[in-house]
């Protein structure tokens, strides 16, 4: 029991530590694809350090929501991080929570971030909150449907148990249900992490932005928390995809060898996903806002096909 708890906390800590690195890898890859040298892999850490040195300017119109939102957002993501198997998928006695809790913890963070966006009274924040909530509303069923397919296929909604079963059964991705669910979930991940073609993570002052707009009034340390949170959320979703559909190498016990293999395999997997995301960002232009629901609807139907395929094949 102690070991199980320990591995959960170690995994969550690992996610927090490498989340900015993955963001850095994406930035670097994008820069290289655009024939630039780009910032260092470790630039996101330096940015966080920089925010930590600054004073924070708070709008005089705000309430306590604005001040507490970053911590609620980050705490929700940190608890979600405890739910996701990273380098090890140890048996049944894992942390008590499941995919539904995972998705709803993300929703909890989003709820308070959207409120914070409205709190300062600026139209930018309001616009961003409104769009974020609208897109998230369409993304949520598209995210849960493929996860339901997996839950039904493995007979549990516990993430660790799903990953464990998938790890035992080898090449799960070859099944049509899994393949379709994977594509569906991947599209949702792009939307949820605020990447092109859904949202542009690199701009602060365009009318197209969503996530960055809600952060507009933040500065200094609260901004560091929110940036860290956004990186962590991105890594959480990558981890989810990597371990649900490609559970290769993940440790199924407590052996040191297994855990080392699990760690290396995990790092390779998330780096690969990061690079793929960077390629997609470089290949596509940002979509018009009202085309995004069509994309997510497509993803929903892929998920539905996956679900039907689960019962047919």
């Amino acid at each position: 029991m102690i070991r199980v708890l320990l591995i959960n906390f170690v995994q969550a800590a690992l996610l927090v530590v490498i989340a900015p690195l993955v963001a850095g890898i994406i930035k670097k890859t994008k820069a290289r694809l655009q024939m630039r040298r780009g910032p260092s892999f470790f630039q996101p850490y330096l940015d966080l350090y920089k925010y930590g040195q600054k004073e924070s300017v708070v709008s005089e119109h705000t309430s306590w929501i604005f001040k507490s939102a970053p911590y609620i957002y980050f705490a929700a993501l940190l608890v979600a991080a405890l739910l996701v198997p990273v380098i090890s998928s140890v048996g049944k006695l894992n942390f008590s929570g499941d995919i539904i809790l995972f998705i709803y913890l993300l929703a909890l963070g989003r709820f308070f971030l959207a409120l914070a966006g409205l709190d300062a009274g600026s139209a930018f924040g309001g616009m961003a909150s409104s769009r974020e909530m609208a897109i998230a509303a369409v993304a949520e069923p598209a995210a849960l449907l493929p996860l339901f397919t997996l839950a039904i296929a493995t007979g549990t909604t516990n993430l660790t148990a799903i990953v464990f079963k998938n790890a035992m059964s080898g090449l799960v991705l070859l099944k049509p249900a899994y393949l379709l669910s994977f594509i569906a979930l991947f599209i949702v991940t792009i939307a949820e992490t605020g990447r092109i073609p859904v949202d542009n993570p690199d701009t602060h002052l365009e009318l197209t932005m969503m996530h960055e707009g809600m952060l507009l009034e933040y500065s200094g340390k609260p901004l560091a928390v929110l940036t860290m949170g956004a990186d962590l959320k991105q890594l959480l979703l990558f981890t989810l995809i990597a371990n649900l559909f490609f559970p290769w190498g993940i440790a199924i016990g407590f052996g040191v060898g297994q855990i080392v293999v699990g760690l290396v395999a995990y790092l390779l997997k998330v780096c690969a996903i990061g690079i793929i995301i960077a390629c997609i960002e470089s290949l596509f232009a940002k979509m018009r806002l009202f085309k995004v629901p069509d994309l997510l609807l497509g993803s929903f139907f892929l998920g539905l096909l996956g679900l039907i395929a689960k019962f047919i094949f």
Partner: peptide, 29 residues
Amino acid sequence: LLGMAGLVAYLVVKYIGKGGSVRYAETWN
């Protein structure tokens, strides 16, 4: 866990880095 995570985040942010003073100003418009 939510409470603990929030508290830990708050404390870490509060004591690491020399920034953190708060200035109240108009919303940027």
